[in-house]
Amino acid sequence: MVRYLLAAGFSVLALTSVASAQDAAAGKATFRQCMACHVVDQEQNRVGPHLVGIVGRPVASIEGFNYSDAMRAYSEDGAKVWDDATLATYLADPRGVVQGTRMAFAGVKDEAALANLIAYLSDPAAAE
């Protein structure tokens, strides 16, 4: 019985790490919707700011990027940080959360796709 429980426990651990990699890979596919305006692999702004290191970064904090007044207000003078919860809320409905943002994207409505996208943004290399 103990041997069975240990084997089951190791199987769960193995599946958890595989699932994490699959989530980031699925998030990379979801990110294709964002690629016209954003990059995750270099600190180069496009129409939107680059997303290198977005998770844990203060909102509206990329030097030299011209954020909208609405996004600067949303940043709470640099006090608000892009964590998983903030990203999930914003990416589900950008224009509803930050009224007046220039981001034209309607949002990611599917919760699984949204979670996968955040997993990818957290660690783009995990999708490789």
Rank of each mutant, 00 (worst) to 15 (best):
M1P: 08
V2G: 14
Y4L: 13
L6M: 07
L6Q: 10
A8G: 05
S11L: 12
V12T: 02
L13W: 05
L13R: 04
A14M: 08
A14W: 08
A19C: 03
A19R: 09
A21V: 11
D23N: 09
A24L: 11
A25C: 08
A25Y: 13
A26I: 05
G27N: 05
A29G: 01
T30C: 06
T30A: 11
T30H: 07
T30N: 04
F31T: 09
F31A: 12
Q33A: 14
M35E: 15
A36Y: 10
A36G: 03
C37E: 12
V40D: 07
V40P: 05
D41N: 14
D41M: 11
E43V: 13
Q44V: 15
N45M: 03
N45K: 06
N45C: 07
P49H: 03
V52H: 02
V52S: 05
V55Q: 07
V55A: 00
P58S: 13
P58L: 05
V59Y: 01
V59C: 02
V59N: 02
A60S: 00
S61M: 09
F65K: 07
N66P: 13
D69G: 10
A70T: 10
M71K: 01
M71W: 06
M71E: 12
R72T: 15
R72A: 08
A73D: 15
A73P: 02
Y74N: 11
S75V: 08
E76W: 01
E76S: 12
G78N: 06
G78A: 11
A79P: 11
A79C: 02
K80P: 06
V81L: 03
D83C: 00
D83A: 00
T86E: 15
T86C: 05
T86P: 01
D93I: 07
D93Q: 01
P94C: 08
G96D: 12
V97L: 03
V97C: 00
V98S: 05
R102F: 03
R102P: 06
M103D: 08
F105I: 10
A106V: 15
K109H: 06
E111G: 14
E111A: 14
A112Y: 10
N116R: 12
N116T: 10
N116V: 06
L117P: 13
L121E: 14
L121T: 08
S122D: 14
S122Y: 00
D123C: 04
A127E: 11
A127F: 02
E128C: 00
E128K: 14
